[in-house]
């Protein structure tokens, strides 16, 4: 079954396969290291924090 394959085919397919594996692994690492998209900005979170809970603990300016 494999006797008909030439040396060139074997070497080329091995190298291409190794490169494909390496590319796949690198792409996975890139996706992993990419920061997740945030739904809210930091300013919004700061503005909407529950300051009303602090009314007798700490005085925080009203409004933004």
């Amino acid at each position: 079954m494999f006797e008909a394959m030439g040396l060139e085919t074997v070497i080329v397919s091995t190298i291409v396969g190794a490169c494909a594996l390496s590319f796949g692994a690198s792409a996975y690492l890139f996706l992993r290291a990419r920061p997740a998209a945030e739904a809210k900005t930091l300013d919004e979170i700061v503005k909407n924090a529950p300051y009303h809970r602090l009314h007798n603990v700490l005085k925080v300016e009203a409004g933004s």
Partner: peptide, 15 residues
Amino acid sequence: KFKRRPATALVAMAN
């Protein structure tokens, strides 16, 4: 009086 900033937001969230 403290300003509204991440530090005070953290205190508010903890409370």
